[in-house]
Design a protein around this nucleic acid. Sequence first.
DNA 1: AAGATATATAACTAATAAGTTAAAAGGTGA
DNA 2: TCACCTTTTAACTTATTAGTTATATATCTT
Lengths: 104, 104
Amino acid sequence: MSSPDKVFEALASTARRRILAYLSEGPLTAGVVADRFEMSQPAVSKHLSILEAADLIWKKREGQFVKYGMKADNLGSTLAKFMQEVCPPSRTLKAERCAESDPD
Amino acid sequence: MSSPDKVFEALASTARRRILAYLSEGPLTAGVVADRFEMSQPAVSKHLSILEAADLIWKKREGQFVKYGMKADNLGSTLAKFMQEVCPPSRTLKAERCAESDPD
DNA sequence: AAGATATATAACTAATAAGTTAAAAGGTGA
DNA sequence: TCACCTTTTAACTTATTAGTTATATATCTT
């Protein structure tokens, strides 16, 4: 179970969004991810654990390595649910509510 | 022009997401928004200005009041673009990449 | 068991964020 | 102009975040 709060908090960081995008190309070990970013290894490790806490990625030990990979489901459903809260179809249908509203 | 960074930063706050959802029901004055939330009026004002900086809402002075309203476009396009970065259709097509990736 | 490598945690610092109250700015109307 | 109302800005406090280096833990290899 993951809260939307944790997801949005995780996405708030540009570094984490970039890590996520990088992982979306395929699973990688923590070390490979760390090498790709100009940040200390512990910093990347912390970002990874925040992404994991938000249930946006999975983690699996493989010998002395730890492999991480993306979990698209939770990202998609959280963002979709939020979009719906903020711009529900019922409202979209009647009088293009979500497109309108700009007085300029 | 609004940066994705500002949008994600704006959405990182639960309070701001709730304000946004509230505004999505229709434009309201700052005071009405402030009344709805258990927070001082200046605090709400600050949240509103962050949402505005992210181009998620518009603002219009009406006499001594200031009316705010949602701007759905930027929210939708920013989230859509991000989803695409993190789970591009090309990859989705070949081998259900974005659904897979979970080793459990 | 020892040494090397991979990753995570601890302890710390500096910057940022979110809230507060008090004061300023903008607008109304007698 | 003066009193009043709405909203924003300023100044400040406290908590959180993002990074650092140093250390601990886990695993592999010999």
